[in-house]
């Protein structure tokens, strides 16, 4: 199973949202990292064929998705960034409605809805209207609707947005467990989410992939550019203005700064092991 993107481009007038992006995705979890406006959502909408590309194509198992019609939609699960719902529906009703649109026969749909409500810890609120739900609960309904047809390609745009830490861990575990031989692509700007579950990560900026690889590979790219520097508290602001500071930790009267810089920022700075956060900050700097 393979989802390939070939020179995918999207222009809005003179603005380039996605710029000639190519990649091949096999089974596994892929993270799409990028700041707001990097082009993540536009790319995901093109992968779901919601948006027509200006140029390039998306292929699933060698077949162009625009020619596959319902055969492609049948293997697709999608959670949009701006997940909407019908306020008069209960969680169970909404999922049954989406199951009907996904062509799942009623008897099987009922079973599947119950399973997913259970998996996403929504059974107790299944008969409550979605409009009464918290942000995290709504997001879980969104994830449940994407999983209804047991999709081979699961595309989730900011799935952890609005979730509390416990819910985020739960969702991350669910996705890891679910992935198996499926393609799961999730976008986020929360680096720790990607770090925890993604097999491979794409980092996107200004419509292009600027980095691609496993989490350790990406972190390794900034080895020798991450420094720890202990300075008196009153000097902290100076360093924050001068460099990209990834972390700031108090130690008595002093602060320990984690600085991202090409060269050793000061004599007392010591090189340290990089993590994905550092690689991300190295590329996005102050913007992030």
């Amino acid at each position: 199973m393979e989802l390939s993107i070939d020179r995918l481009t999207k222009h809005y007038g003179h603005k380039i949202a996605v710029d000639c992006v190519s990649a091949t995705l096999g089974p596994g979890v892929y993270g799409l990292l990028g700041a707001n406006g990097a082009g993540k959502t536009t790319l995901m909408r093109m992968l779901c064929a919601i948006l027509e590309p200006t140029a390039g194509e998306v292929r699933f198992d060698g077949r162009e998705v625009s020619a596959m019609g319902e055969a492609y939609r049948d293997v697709l699960g999608y959670l949009p960034q701006d997940f909407g719902y019908y306020p008069t529906y209960t969680a169970a009703e909404f999922l049954s409605y989406i199951a009907a649109l996904k062509g799942i026969p009623r008897d099987r749909a009922g079973r599947r809805v119950r399973e997913l409500l259970e998996t996403l810890d929504l059974t107790a609120v299944a008969d409550r209207k979605i409009k009464t739900f918290s942000g995290g609960m709504k997001q879980r309904v969104g994830v449940a609707q994407a999983l209804l047809n047991d999709p081979k390609v699961l595309i989730l745009d900011e799935p952890t947005a609005g979730l509390d830490p416990k819910e985020r861990v739960r969702l991350r575990n669910l996705l890891s467990e679910y992935a198996g031989d499926r393609i799961v692509l999730l976008s986020t700007h929360i680096v720790s989410d990607v770090e925890a579950i993604a097999d491979r990560v794409f980092v996107m900026n200004a419509g292009r992939f600027i980095m691609y690889g496993t989490v350790p590979e990406l972190a390794e790219q900034v080895r020798g550019k991450v420094w720890e520097l202990t300075v008196p508290r009153e000097q902290a602001r100076f360093w924050q203005e001068r460099c990209t500071v990834a972390n700031y930790r108090h130690e008595g009267e002093q602060v320990v700064l984690r600085i991202i810089a090409d060269a050793k920022p000061a004599d007392g700075a010591a090189a340290c092991d990089p993590i994905l956060d550092d690689a991300y900050l190295y590329h996005f700097g102050k913007e992030a």
Partner: peptide, 22 residues
Amino acid sequence: FRGQHYRVSEVEAVTRTSGALL
């Protein structure tokens, strides 16, 4: 127009039956 109004149209559109069949 309810799908558009409640921002469900994207979710509806990527289902097997699609927004058109709906």
